[in-house]
Simulated scan of single mutants.
Amino acid sequence: MKILITGQHGQVSLELQQRLQGLGELVILGRDQLDLADADLIRQQVRAHRPGLIINAAAHTAVDLAESEPDAAFAINTIAPGILAEEAKALSIPLIHYSTDYVFDGSKPAPYTESDTPNPLGVYGQSKLAGEQAIAAAGGEYLILRTSWVYSGHGKNFLLTMQRLLQEKAQMRIVADQIGAPTWAGTIASSTRALIQQWQAGKAGDWGVYHLTAQGETSWFGFAQAIGEQLRIEGKACAELEPIPSSAYPTPAKRPLNSRLDCSRLQQQWHVSQPHWQDALHECLAKQH
């Protein structure tokens, strides 16, 4: 089977390229081959390769930048996924697409389920929600996997930023009132492999929207503490951490205070579950050495 993956150097795409080996021929289309803002090119590429499965691992993920360039965010996060879904339906193949906790406003006191009504706070969340709706409107088979707080050993993310800054600074103030589950890109890729294997084995659950994050919960402050602990174990310098409220660290895009997602439906329907965020973090850190 030919698996077409959009995105080449993104966190999730890099992990998929490692973890989907052996499932089929991987066709990786990075920005050089596929400009997701070019609708005609997307159709041409899908029709040229005729894959048996499409995985859309590319996105406009710069949350604050999206506020000042909404057209780019909607082109990549909304229009492109809709076109991929239409092409997948034309080929009678499934589409796997990744979405985000930012489709919710974070006001719910408990973890969000798939049946909760989205209410995004900013352009990024709005564009991702519209992308989900465009995929559903195409009427084919799809999995939309909402995840949160993605990090890895590659690219730009909270883990790598903290590892650098904690060693450079004496003190750091970190937001402590946003709660969620840091989710390693390796976890997302491993779960995606398990989902594909269930589908290939004829054991697929229902198609649709699912939540896929690590288990457990913490704040950005708690996540930073865990990263700092590892630095100390390795005998490296580590800044003193001070918890602060979101109001003390204003950003162009407002973040949800509650980013917790209930992932039980994925376990029930597809028998795929995720590790605790701390266990996944340790595995990711071990791979850095």
Rank of each mutant, 00 (worst) to 15 (best):
K2M: 01
K2A: 03
I3Q: 00
L4G: 02
G7I: 02
G10Y: 00
E15D: 09
Q17G: 07
Q18G: 08
L20N: 05
G22F: 13
G22V: 12
G24T: 13
V27N: 06
Q33C: 14
D35R: 03
D40R: 12
L41P: 12
I42N: 05
R43C: 05
Q45M: 06
V46L: 03
R47A: 14
R47V: 14
G52R: 03
I54G: 02
A58E: 01
A59C: 06
E67Q: 13
E69A: 12
P70Q: 08
D71Q: 04
A72I: 08
A73N: 10
I76K: 01
T78N: 13
I83T: 11
I83K: 01
L84R: 00
A88I: 08
A88L: 05
A90T: 07
S92C: 06
S92G: 12
I93D: 00
I93E: 00
I96L: 06
I96D: 01
D101N: 12
V103Y: 04
V103C: 10
F104M: 03
G106Q: 02
A110N: 12
T113G: 14
E114G: 09
E114R: 01
S115I: 15
P120Y: 02
G125H: 07
L129E: 04
A130F: 14
A130G: 14
E132R: 10
A134C: 10
A138W: 03
G139L: 06
E141Y: 08
E141D: 08
Y142A: 07
L143W: 03
L145H: 01
L145N: 01
L145D: 05
T147A: 13
T147S: 13
S148W: 03
H154L: 03
H154A: 05
K156C: 11
F158I: 08
L160A: 05
L165W: 00
K169F: 00
A170S: 14
A170L: 14
Q171A: 12
M172E: 04
A176E: 00
D177H: 02
Q178I: 15
G180H: 06
T183Y: 03
T183V: 11
W184I: 04
T187I: 07
I188A: 07
S191W: 05
S191E: 07
T192D: 01
T192Y: 00
R193Y: 02
A201F: 08
G202S: 10
V209G: 07
V209A: 08
Y210L: 05
A214E: 00
Q215S: 09
E217G: 15
S219R: 09
W220F: 14
W220L: 15
G222Y: 02
G222I: 11
G222V: 13
A224E: 00
A226Y: 01
A226R: 02
G228Q: 01
L231W: 01
G235D: 07
E240V: 14
L241M: 03
E242N: 13
A253C: 15
P256L: 11
N258D: 07
S259I: 07
L261D: 04
S264C: 10
S264W: 04
R265Q: 11
Q267W: 14
H271S: 15
S273M: 12
S273N: 12
Q274L: 11
W277G: 06
A280N: 06
A286H: 15
A286V: 15
K287P: 15
